[in-house]
């Protein structure tokens, strides 16, 4: 880019930037705006609320329905994330560092699962979980979440693990470490950022799921927020649930926004590193 066009180039990029930001933010701002509208102004079609209120938030936090769903969402996503990252880290370490039979098979299987149509699992899981009595339980959702999060975790983590120079592990062994010590004291501290990033990605995945959440639950016992949203009725049966739905939607969007704001760099590197070969 020639020097004399710098200002103009900056302006051009600036405009494009604004376009992207608007494109990305408008739907989010819109639902936030709806959540702050009073019932009277809810249908005025205005992008910015004319009258602001927090009533919608009060309503949802007063109803057991939403609070229960929020607890389910947080609990299920956290447990699934923890397990998926731990199992994924073990497998990714083995894949990127060790030589053992069946390694390619594992990589192939997880790739297959990453592309798997989840709906194909809904019918058998529905039936199997009913037989195992885990239908409509946390476990019933955690299991498929772990399964579909594992390929993501394994890919992202093996990409991170591969960036850690091989020699370090050799050096640790030469310095007198066992394989276990080499992992704990040398590789793990270096892998921590990767683990953290992977945890965020996996959490977002679990937090997001809708299909399993509505298929494998039937009551408030384990229904997560995305699934509960469509069963929302508002404070009473006859009230328009729009404001409540929007408030609930905003609440579950907050963690995502926080992640994105604080860990943008990590998320980008996590998503891109797993995607590029080598």
């Amino acid at each position: 880019m020639a020097v004399e066009t710098t200002t103009r180039a900056k302006l051009r990029w600036g405009l494009l930037d604004v376009l992207v930001v608007v494109f990305a933010l408008v739907p989010v701002l819109w639902i936030a705006s709806l959540s702050f509208k009073t019932p009277a102004t809810l249908t005025d079609g205005n992008f910015i609320p004319r009258e602001w209120t927090l009533d919608n938030y009060r309503t949802i936090f007063d109803t057991d329905q939403f609070v229960r769903a929020l607890v389910n969402s947080i609990g299920i996503a956290l447990i699934a994330t923890l397990i998926a990252v731990v199992l994924g880290a073990m497998a990714a370490y083995a894949i990127s560092r060790l030589d053992f039979p069946g390694k390619k098979l594992l990589v192939g299987v997880s790739l297959l699962i990453a592309m798997f149509p989840q709906v194909s699992l809904v019918s058998p899981l529905f039936e199997i979980e009913r037989q195992l009595k885990i239908f409509d339980t946390w476990l019933g959702l955690i299991l498929p979440y772990i399964t579909f999060a594992l390929p993501l975790a394994i890919y992202t983590l093996s990409a991170f693990f591969k960036q850690i120079p091989w020699d370090l592990e050799k050096a640790a062994k030469m310095d007198g470490a066992t394989q276990g010590q080499a992992f704990r004291r040398v590789i793990a501290p270096l892998a921590a950022p990767g683990l953290f990033t992977t945890a965020i990605l996996v959490f977002i995945f679990c937090w997001n799921d809708f299909l399993f959440a509505i298929s494998l639950t039937s009551t408030e016992r384990s229904r997560t927020v995305p699934a509960a949203l469509s069963f929302f009725t508002g404070a009473s049966q006859f009230e328009d649930p729009t404001g409540a739905i929007c408030a609930a939607a905003v609440v579950i969007t907050v963690p995502i926004i926080l992640f994105v704001l604080f860990f943008q760099r990590r998320i980008v590197s996590g998503l891109t590193s797993g995607a590029v070969k080598g």
Partner: peptide, 14 residues
């Protein structure tokens, strides 16, 4: 390696 009591210097320093 750890039972051989030898030290190693790597090209990448490690």
């Amino acid at each position: 390696p750890r039972d051989r009591d030898i030290a190693m210097v790597f090209q990448s320093y490690a």
